[in-house]
Every structure is written in C-alpha cells, then in structure tokens.
Nucleic acid binder design. Structure first.
Length: 586
RNA sequence: GGUCCCGUAGCUUAACGGAUAGAGCAUCGGAUUUCGGCUCCGAAGGUUAUAGGUUCGAAUCCUAUCGGGAUCACCA
C-alpha cells in the first residue's frame, strides 16, 4: 500500500488503541519532512493531544514507537516539539519506484461516474480575442483537463454572445464604409476585420456626439439611432439584416476558430445567444407562483434578495422582455437538460461576481435540483505594466499578436543558445511553437486565479526560472538521457542506498495524484503549474548531483534510469494539464 | 454609501491553521576534461499594510483602520 496512506491508517489505529479515541484517517496530517530535519514524512500530533491527555512530545514518542513496530517500511523516528518525523526504510524506495514505472498513466484517477460541464471563453462577436480572453481560455481548458484526470466526464461549452446592439454597430459601420471588403479580399482574419469596423463605428459616434454637444442638441447621435433600428430589424427577422449578420458572424467564427486552434483548445457544444435569449421566461412564471418573484404595477418582475445582501433584481422588463439573468436562468436549465451534469463551472471574470451570486441564489430559490452544483470560477483582471487594458484607448493586447510574438522570441532564444540540430525545419518550427506557447501559458496559469495579475510581456516570454520552458527543458533532458542509455533491463530491487535527491524526487512524484485532486477540488490550475515547476527543479538538481549512466552499481543505474523515465512521464502529464506540449529537443 | 476581492523581499509571486514565510526575476559571488550550462551552488534582500483579538500554534480565522480593484442598469 501507498506509504502515506499506511501511516494515516496506523496513526488512526494507534490513537484508538492507545487512547480509546476514534479518529478518521482523513484527520491525520502527513506531510513530507522539511529538509532541515531528519526524516522522510512528518505526522502532526497536536490534533490528538486533547484526546490522549498527553503533552505533544510524549504523545509523539508513543506514536513513534507504535508506528515503528507496526508499519513495515518505517525504520525509525525522531520527535521535535509536536512533530513526529518518520524515517522510511531504504528498501521502500525502489519498491515504490517499481510500482510507479508500471503505471503508464500515473496520476489519472478512475472514473467517478460524474459529469462536469466547463463553460469558458464565451466572447462577443464584435471584436477579436485579447489578453483577458487568453487568461479565461487557458484557465478553462486547464480546468477541464484537470477534472477529466480527476475522474470526471467533462463537457466543454461556451455561450457566444452573437446578438445585440454592439453587434449591429460593427455591421452598420461595415455597411456604410466597408466597400464590400471581405476577409478574403483583404487577406485578413475575419474577427480582426469586424473589430476594425467596430472601432470605426465608435469613432463616428463619438464625433457625432461632440458635434451635437457643441450645438446644444441633446438628441442621440444619428448613427446610434441607426444601430438601434438595425437591431429592431434583426429582431423582426428582416432578411437583409439577418443575412449581413450571418455573413459577418461567419467571418468572426472563422477567425476565432483559428485562434482556438493555435491555443490548442476546443469545445463540445456551442450555445448561441441568438438562440437562447428568449429562454428563461417560463421560469419566471414558475417563480411567480412560488413567490420567488413579484410583479410591480408597471408589469416588470423582480426578486427581492435583500435578506442575503444582494438587493432587488429585475428579471423581466415592463415590456415583457428578458434581461441578462433571465437568459442565464434559461441557459442553466437548458444545459442541465443537455448534460444532467453533477457539476457546472462557469469560467468568467470577477467583474461578474455579483451577477453569478444572484443567478445561483435565484436558481436555489426556484428549487432547481442542480442549483447547489454550480460554481463560478472567478478570475482577476489582467493588468499591463502600463496600466489597465482599455479597448477604447487602443491599449489591448491582441491574442493573435501575442502568440506570434511569443514564438518569435522562442526562436531567437533557441538559435542563440539552444540545440535543435538534427531536427528537420518543420520539427524546429514545431519546437519553437511549443516553447513559446509554453512560456505564455505557464506564465498566465501559475498565478492563483482569484488574484489580479500583472502581465509583463518581457517576463511572459522568459525561458528561465519559474517558466514553462524551464519545465520543458527538464523533460528534454530525461529524453536525452534515456536515448543515450539505449535499451536496458536491470533489476533495481537490489538498490538499497537511495540518496536524498532521489528520495526527494520520489516524494514529489508521490504527491502528483493528490495534487490533481486538490486542483480539481479548489478549481485551481495554478497548483499544477507550481507542482510541475517543483518537480522539474528537483530533477535538475538530481541530474546535476548524481551520475546516472555512470552510477556506481548496475542496480543504481537502473534505478536512476527508471526514475528519469517516470519523471519524464509525470512532467509530460502535468504540462498536459496546463495545455502545454513538450518538445523533443530545444 | 452598501457588498465582494486583493495587500507577502526592489519587481513577479508561493505557502490543507503547523517547524526558521518558500521560489523566480533583477543584484553580487561561485561551479563544467563526466549523462544537454535554457543547468547547478551561494550571498544579500521580509515587523506578511496597520492595530487589536481567537489558540498549543496565525500570512491564513474574527474585529477595526488604511491603501488598491470590482460591483450595486428595465446593457450584456
């Protein structure tokens, strides 16, 4: 059995037998012993002092004796204050390594029979994707991979905001000033083209507004009235408007798909707001009957959430049309019909914290069965060294530009100091792409989602230190060593002198499955990024300090090669959870 | 104004309520006739915003204060 599990069970049993007090295994805290102390694993005895009625050091001593006698691989112990440091037998490590090497998909948890839906990206179709979307997309994709590896059946979805007056604005500008230009005629990505006309519209509106203001005219700008008129036509199914709308959205989707492909992400189902914006109204009826909502004199429908500090919220306008939450009520229900998921995760920025609190609260009051299984994976804003991104001021970082840039830098660095000799031109380019994307992805995922993050373009392409390429480099090293070793078939059980560096590596590797579960439970991909870095760092030290191919004994060589192989596998897997691919050389 | 989130080294950041707060960048100084130097080792750098409280133990929990951000639309 796996060592920390054995320790936990034994401690629980010991407390029960020695002090007649029942404790759950899960209450026993076992952590790797800190480097400055002797031992491999540490048990915290503080939680049991009350039950045992003993001082921590005495209790630790008694538990230490019990564990040494009753658990096979515990060779000894020492006590420092209330910390019981256990020394694991030398024989344990090669046994453990052997069991690891037998598991090709180490870290992958068996199916738990549950379905999880992850919604992410969910852009508007009037402008290209930018840095903020990149954080969203990377978090969403990584979260979906983590849940998948933790045993869920994962569905990836997004809801595309493809209607509304903002969409009409770029349509209108293209109609007026587009001169029939298309992505093909200009050789431009469709989302960028449409985004440009959105800017054209905004400039025009601003100009008209200034003229009106100067003349003391309080009317709305002409062009805004035209945009509103276009939306009315769209809603009335005017064929010409619908056709233009379909065409321009088509351009945008083609552009988005290219960006998604470059980011290495995909979706199982797309929801379009144009098809869902009328949903949710039936739920209003139900809510009125249940007393969740009430009607004002003007016919508008509200819900009063002041008892949970969420104020009052309108859910149906006086003209009977629905608002944002109403649609989301409907889409939540729609999604449940589609997937009967056990868990639903919305990856959306923290500016919508309030909205999701309201949404979840209403669903709960409506008595929806899935209401308790919804989670808003809220993430902080991405800031630039120059300040905030503002689309109106042109300080946005475009997603496509960013990806290009990062690959260019990777190539430059690689040509300067890397080793891609022996690769075909295509393989070189592929390697550079993987390295550049690794730098970008790792840099964005390593920060705890909840926090605002500073995105420094210079640091995002860093290949040293706490970076994606650093981890990739460790992987490439494992490949290189294994290639040099050729075929080997060595019995490693005779290796009984594990070095501290080897034990440390194995201790870190042992944490991998737990780390995945923790990341899934906390909805936090940054845990995986930090884990991957820790493992890579530890392998680099091992590699530096200890000869592998020139090991003192044959068993030692086999042990270290096996260890190298396992490290390579875990690094590949962990990076995979971040959406990062490993290169063969770099 | 109400509500929510954040505040850790010069900068970017980590730490299930657990030992002397851990890394990276930048700075300074070292290591290679041996498996890939995009590596490794070391130095310096911290009153965890401030003041109280809770307890065996607090960056973490509670209260207040100060900073920063978000949000509180018959927009989405």
């Amino acid at each position: 059995m796996e060592i920390t599990q054995s320790i936990k069970e034994a401690v629980a049993k010991a407390v029960s037998e020695l002090y007649q007090h029942e404790v759950q295994e899960s209450e026993v805290q076992v952590t790797p012993t800190r480097k400055e102390f002797e031992g491999d694993y540490t048990v915290l005895v503080f939680p049991f002092t009350r039950a045992a009625k003993k001082a921590p050091p005495v209790l630790a001593e008694e538990l230490g004796n019990y564990l040494t006698e009753n658990v096979d691989d515990i060779a000894g112990f020492n006590v420092i204050k209330g910390f019981l440091n256990l020394v694991i037998s030398d024989a344990y490590w090669s046994k453990f390594l052997l069991s690891l090497s037998a598991q090709e998909d180490y870290g992958k948890h068996a199916s738990n029979g549950k379905t999880a839906v992850v919604e992410y990206s969910s852009p508007n179709t009037n402008k290209p994707l930018h840095l903020g979307h990149v954080r969203n997309i990377l978090l969403g994709w990584s979260m979906s991979k983590i849940l998948d590896t933790a045993g869920y059946d994962v569905k990836r979805v997004q809801i595309i905001n493809d209607r509304g007056v903002h969409i009409c604005k770029s349509m209108l500008a293209w109609q007026k000033y587009g001169e029939g230009n298309t992505p093909e005629s200009l050789g431009k990505k469709g989302d960028h083209l449409v985004g440009e006309y959105y800017v054209v519209y905004n400039n025009e509106e601003k100009e008209q507004r200034a003229i009106l203001k100067a003349a003391g005219d309080e009317n709305e700008p002409q062009i805004l009235q035209e945009a509103r008129e276009m939306l009315r036509k769209w809603e009335a199914n005017d064929p010409e408007t619908r056709k233009l709308w379909a065409t321009m959205n088509g351009w945008v989707y083609a552009g988005f798909n290219e960006t998604y492909k470059n980011l290495g992400v995909s979706f199982d189902k797309l929801y379009y707001e144009s098809e869902t914006y009328l949903l949710g109204k039936d739920m209003i009826e139900k809510g009125l009957e249940k007393g969740v909502f009430y009607k004002e004199e003007d016919g508008s429908v509200w819900t009063d959430l002041t008892d949970v500090k969420l104020d009052k919220k309108i859910v149906l306008r006086s003209d009977g049309t629905s608002v944002y939450v109403t649609q989301d009520l409907g889409t939540a229900q729609e999604r449940y019909k589609d997937f009967q998921m056990d868990k639903s995760i919305y990856v959306v920025g923290n500016e919508q914290d309030h909205h999701f609190k309201v949404l979840f609260e209403i669903l709960k009051r409506l008595g929806e069965s899935y209401a308790d299984n919804l989670y808003h994976l809220s993430y902080g804003m991405v800031e630039l060294p120059s300040g905030k991104m503002k689309s109106r001021e042109g300080t946005v970082v475009d997603a496509d530009d960013l990806m290009n840039e990062v690959v260019v830098v990777a190539r430059e660095e690689s040509l300067e100091r890397g080793d891609v000799s022996g690769l075909t031109v295509e393989s070189q380019q592929e390697a550079w792409r993987r390295i550049g994307m690794a730098a970008l992805k790792f840099h964005m995922i390593r920060v705890t989602p909840r926090k605002n993050m500073l995105f420094d373009p210079k640091e995002s392409v860093d290949i040293q230190g706490q970076s994606g390429p650093f981890v990739q480099y460790s992987y490439v090293r494992t490949k290189s060593v294994l290639a040099k070793a050729g075929d080997w078939d060595i019995d490693i059980s005779a290796y009984q002198t594990p070095q501290p560096q080897e034990k440390e590596l194995l201790t870190i590797i042992r944490k991998y499955p737990d780390t995945i579960l923790e990341a899934a439970k906390n909805y936090d991909p940054s845990l995986i990024a930090n884990y991957a870095y820790e493992l890579a760092k530890s392998y680099n030290k091992f590699f530096h300090d200890i000869p592998i191919l020139r090991a003192e004994t044959e068993a030692g060589k086999g042990f270290r090669l096996t260890l190298t192989q396992v490290v390579g596998r875990v690094l590949t897997s962990a990076l995979g959870l971040l959406g990062i691919e490993v290169p063969e050389r770099m």
